[in-house]
Design a protein around this nucleic acid. Structure first.
Lengths: 241, 241
DNA sequence: GCGTTGTGTTTTGTATGCAGTTTACATCTC
DNA sequence: GAGATGTAAACTGCATACAAAACACAACGC
């Protein structure tokens, strides 16, 4: 099957007037999407030749892209044995949630202090978009806006370093979401939490926003862990000493 | 001058019995050291051909190493115009300190909960090594153990994700340390803070440890900013296209 | 039958070649 | 002399070629 549009041809259309993007960047974005969206599942072996053919490029930019994704934690490099989509071990995911929690708390504090009224208006707009999709039961679209809200919240904290690290971790965790199935009651509850979040943000009530973010994340962790435990062998790697 | 030992030959000695390391990894570590140690100063242009000759390798592994360092933030990639050692803008450094603060606070909490007694003994040993070098006025060695203590503290928190992110940010900030000149009184104070830190850790007093870490980092920021303001022109927002 | 060794194939790691872009610099114009 | 324009050199980006390692599997020995 050669139905896939190669990056080379796809990029060609845009190149003309806009700033030329580098091939390995295109590849990186493309692969990241494929991994995050679940098109390439955790543990999948990434054969260079196959991927090159599929993306219509040579090995050099592909390998460069893989290096980037490896340092983002989405890909694992096995010396002399190629690359694979990083497995989603529950222990690792827990770790990431702990760090994410700390970063979201920081973002909550900063955003209350630094966000402009326009920023908050923007977040509110995204929020109502999300609520609309929730009302219509459109899960995929709901997720989309949900993600956008969280990203936007962190961005409005005005710390590019924070944003970058958050995005990386978030992309990694996001992969698990596609396995989780959200019950109606939990979905409703998540939306309620978002309502509270928006309220706290509008009032710029940092402590309350942080508390809500913390709870929200904790609930998310429960969901993700349930999803992972289904796919992961019961042999628990619980190494508390 | 061709006095530099190439990576190829240097690696050759070790390769025989131990696990073979990949060239681009060697290069990465080597370059990272050169950047962090201040051998390659912020803003330095990294010419591929020159670096290849200096390290005795071809362009492919060098470019792969640069990609990795770029995502760590130590190197900046300018499309079609090569790479340079990432400049140390004071705004960026401030950002990184804010995030580092949040991460160290997290580490402080986790380490009090998760560290084994052996871990703490290890940190104590490092501490006394550091104090000894302080007593002898050996700044370089002092820095070495200082760094090791902070890294070890984070490691003992038992969260590999946290460690990885911390290392990346820390390496970036560390570059500025080599510009800072530490006055006697400030040095003494830093050591005192470390004494308190150890005490709080031994008692596993998380809130107090966090407070000390926060102050310690704030003092470090002051030092770094002073060093940067000397080297950074006051009106520096020159955006070359 | 099971494990071991050897060989051919596949795949990864590194070097090199080629094309397009940027940069440096000399020439020309005002 | 300052700025604009054109051309040559240098450098980067990508593709490909070559070398070395890993893998698959068959033949062999126990």
């Amino acid at each position: 099957m050669t139905e896939s549009v190669t990056i080379a041809s796809a990029a060609g259309n845009v190149t003309s007037l806009a700033e030329r993007r580098l091939l390995h960047e295109e590849v990186m974005d493309r692969l990241r999407d494929m991994i995050v969206q679940g098109e390439l599942l955790p543990g999948t072996k990434l054969n260079e030749r196959v991927l090159c053919e599929r993306l219509g490029i040579s090995r050099t930019p592909l390998r460069e892209a893989l290096k980037f994704l490896a340092s983002e934690g989405l890909v694992e490099l096995l010396p002399n044995r190629g690359a694979q989509v990083a497995p989603l071990k529950s222990a690792k995911v827990k770790e990431m949630f702990v760090v994410l929690g700390s970063l979201e708390a920081l973002a909550g504090e900063l955003v209350c202090r630094n966000a402009s009224d326009a920023d908050i208006a923007e977040i509110r707009a995204l929020h109502y978009q999300m609520v609309a999709h929730h009302a219509r039961g459109e899960l995929a679209q709901y997720f989309r806006y949900n993600q956008q809200i969280h990203i936007k919240l962190v961005e409005c904290a005005g710390n590019a370093t924070l944003t970058q690290i958050y995005r990386g971790l978030n992309a990694n965790v996001k992969r698990a979401r596609y396995m989780a199935n959200l019950s109606k009651s939990r979905w409703d509850r998540a939306v309620e939490e978002h309502e509270d979040m928006l309220d706290a943000l509008v009032r710029r009530d940092a402590p309350r926003l942080q508390a809500i973010l913390r709870d929200h994340l904790a609930n998310k962790l429960v969901l993700v862990m349930e999803a992972l435990n289904v796919n992961e062998p019961p042999i628990n790697t619980d190494k508390r000493r």
